[in-house]
Design a protein around this nucleic acid. Structure first.
Lengths: 230, 230
DNA sequence: ACCTGAACACCGTTCAAGT
DNA sequence: ACCTGAACACCGTTCAAGT
């Protein structure tokens, strides 16, 4: 800002410091506030200075997302039974996305890429499947199904807990009744609805995957609903 | 454009026509090109004219998304066995999101709201569960788990088919081997990887849900992995 | 009430000018 | 090579002025 006009004797920026600033801005201002100008302001630098280190905004987002992937909990793989390790991984994944729902939009904009930390994370998960004896052709697909569900669950994070709550019970009695029954049974256990849903989702998926691959039928199990038009 | 300055004798716009234009712009230009100015240009109108009918851009997106929900295939509920009806609904959901991946970002920005068509769609799905005799407290949750997975799958739509493909097989032999095994087994059936994944996901989830609720254990089935740190 | 046109307060990105 | 500062081509939204 009050820096002289030419090149500084020592570099003020690098990709690391830009990522730090971006992460801080993201936490403070949300995804919409994560602008090049805001990052620059936090670094005490002109916006254009960032472009000497990262070529465009998407590269900044990718760096943020790479840092996110590094923080996921893969400690269960190799130390716990696979099913519990997967569950722990899934919950840590969701928890981190929920702490910073802004990250979801970032990841949607810049899908998880082939960055070192991300690759390392996948490798650990895959090693967990392999060590548990899963057939090689089932591993990538099973991991992907679970991860896909986690992303979907994270999408709901910014929205309120009662998206399915009907607005007028008079007009939609069935929706009202089933919603009330759901809410009551969740409340009985003192669990938040979205946690109950995620728990059901993860456990259903794991149960389903174990059933599909454990039955020996594998890819043949799941037949698409073709033949019944549109 | 070449309209005189005052109020026209007959209204030029309404919410319907704005939604038409927005949908057209979305198809042609993608989510990033869906600007108020582009919509206005398509309507031959000043950007500010839109604000007389819809209060902000998010309202335009909500209208687009409402139209999307109206097009989903719920024809299976009441005519097919539940499992096939759910599968048909899921595939039509995904297919429509894939045709217009831009819609995913719109729906992420403006989560599916309590609009008439959306509510109607949910009611039909719920009625399908109810008619099949599912316990009332299981219906909303089961529908939600499936829908969450669909959204997650739709998120992947804009990205290439080979996100998990390793870049260097030398450094990551396990990743490379499992990916090759997955690709080969999918290729054997002449199926696209993302279709195979979605099929596995939907079938695993349905299998899992039937197992959880069919076993009579219900909410008690799925216990979270508490007690194990982090 | 419903349109235009100008304006406000923003964006991401580029680039000449400086050291 | 690495910074500043000005500029370009955009945004969403507001609002006085017109009929």
């Amino acid at each position: 800002m009050d820096r002289p006009r030419g090149r500084p004797r020592e570099a003020v920026l690098d990709a690391e410091r830009i990522t730090d600033a971006a992460y801080a801005v993201l936490r403070r201002e949300g995804a919409r506030g994560l602008t090049m100008r805001a990052i620059a302001a936090r670094l005490g630098v002109a916006p254009s200075a960032i472009y000497h280190h990262l070529p465009f905004r998407a590269a900044v987002l990718a760096a943020v997302q790479e840092r996110f992937a590094a923080g996921l909990d893969t400690s269960g793989f190799g130390t716990l039974p696979l099913r519990e390790a997967l569950s722990r991984w899934a919950w840590s994944y969701l928890r981190r996305l929920r702490e910073h729902p802004e990250l979801v939009q970032v990841i949607v904009e810049v899908p998880l890429a082939q960055t070192p930390h991300t690759s390392l994370m996948y490798q650990r998960v895959i090693a967990g499947f392999a060590a548990a004896g899963w057939p090689e052709e089932s591993i990538i697909a099973s991991m992907s199904v679970l991860e896909t569900y986690i992303f979907g669950a994270a999408l709901d994070s910014p929205s309120p807990d009662d998206v399915y709550a009907p607005r007028s019970s008079a007009q939609e009695p069935l929706l009202a009744r089933t919603y009330a029954a759901f809410a009551a049974s969740v409340d009985d256990q003192g669990e938040r609805p979205r946690d109950a849903l995620f728990r059901l989702g993860v456990e259903s998926i794991l149960t389903g995957l174990y059933s599909v691959w454990g039955s020996g039928r594998g890819w043949a199990t799941a037949q698409p609903p073709r033949g019944t038009g549109e």
